[in-house]
């Protein structure tokens, strides 16, 4: 009798392990709309796949994340998703997870630890995002002369450096395209608006500017307002291309004020779950870096529908 019970219990638990996985997710916090959207999408993806997601918000603190991972290990979860708040200091806790044979997938950001300590990292290539934006401009202006103004992200931050590099890579060899002014707008709407006002003053009221490249959508939205107030028609007089694909930029595209945006997808969990599924099924080792698609959206991609699809994700 006892034997049958034990066998049934074992069969049930095995069956449960095969179907409903438990996955722990240690999120950085909710410091930006993008991060909130990432949390929402991770929950959605988990629900669609029937995964029991244990969520932990670290409120920007590494010690909270380490505590969360230890607690996930103690709970015996099947896998752990980690969006690390900083790059260093993860070795010991990742080793603990490895000893417990729990695969760890990094989301969005990288760590400095040895590659053996985690299964894979899912993220976007920031340089590639800049290249997609630059390539769009190259294709759009053709051989026409084009004076570009650039709104950089926060000086010294890796998105600012990489998105600048990528854009410059793309326009290299196209001598008709030239970045004439480049300043930081700190990734904010106010910053974008203030710096664009000075660009317009410095470039003859905007008549000499052909395109604006902003390192994120928020700065582009601020700059669009600055252009409208200065009597410049954004989207026509000045082409506007930016990165992130937040809902509001789709509204601007629907109004004809912005031309293109490159998506930094908040759906990092989808590819992570796919990789985990393959790994658990037959032990397929994924690549150490899974690059998410940097998709280009223009005014032809039904921006209003994209806006409706995104506006409730928590951006």
């Amino acid at each position: 009798m006892i034997k049958t019970l034990l066998a049934t219990a074992a069969a049930v638990s095995l069956g449960a392990a095969a179907q409903a996985q438990t996955i722990g997710f240690s999120q950085i916090g909710s410091e930006s709309g993008w991060r909130a959207a990432e949390t929402t999408l991770t929950r959605q993806q988990a629900e669609e796949r029937g995964i029991d997601l244990r969520f932990s918000d670290a409120q920007q603190r590494q010690e909270n994340q380490i505590a969360a991972i230890r607690s996930f290990i103690a709970q015996g979860v099947d896998a752990i998703l980690l969006a690390p708040v900083v790059a260093t200091g993860w070795d010991s806790v990742l080793e603990e997870a490895q000893e417990a044979e729990i695969p760890v997938v990094l989301l969005d950001r990288q760590v400095d630890s040895s590659e053996d300590l985690y299964l894979t990292a899912v993220g976007s290539d920031l340089v590639h995002e800049g290249e997609v934006a630059g390539q769009w401009l190259v294709d759009t202006v053709g051989d026409d002369e084009c004076r570009v103004v650039e709104l950089q992200g926060t000086t010294g931050s890796s998105p600012a450096i990489d998105r600048k590099t990528g854009f410059e890579n793309a326009i290299e060899g196209h001598d008709n395209i030239e970045i004439v002014r480049s300043q930081t707008g700190d990734f904010t709407r106010t910053g974008g608006k203030e710096v664009m006002e000075s660009f317009l003053q410095a470039e003859g009221g905007g008549g000499e500017i052909c395109a604006l490249y902003a390192h994120n959508d928020d700065m582009a939205i601020g700059a669009i307002q600055a252009m409208k107030e200065a009597g410049v028609n954004p989207g026509e007089d000045v082409l506007v291309v930016s990165i992130d694909a937040v809902p509001d930029i789709f509204q601007a595209m629907a109004n004809g004020d912005a031309n293109a945006t490159v998506e930094l997808t908040p759906n990092m969990a989808g590819p992570a779950f796919d990789a985990l599924e393959a790994y658990m099924e037959d032990g397929t080792e994924p690549e150490k870096f899974i690059q998410t698609e940097s998709k280009l959206y223009t005014q032809d991609d039904d921006p209003m529908a994209e806006y409706e699809a995104r506006k409730d994700l928590g951006y």
């Binding site: 410091e31 700190d186 904010t188 709407r189 106010t190 910053g191 601020g222 307002q225």
Partner: peptide, 11 residues
Amino acid sequence: ADIRGADANNS
């Protein structure tokens, strides 16, 4: 009013 939006993180 300037950016027609309240940016709690940066305002």
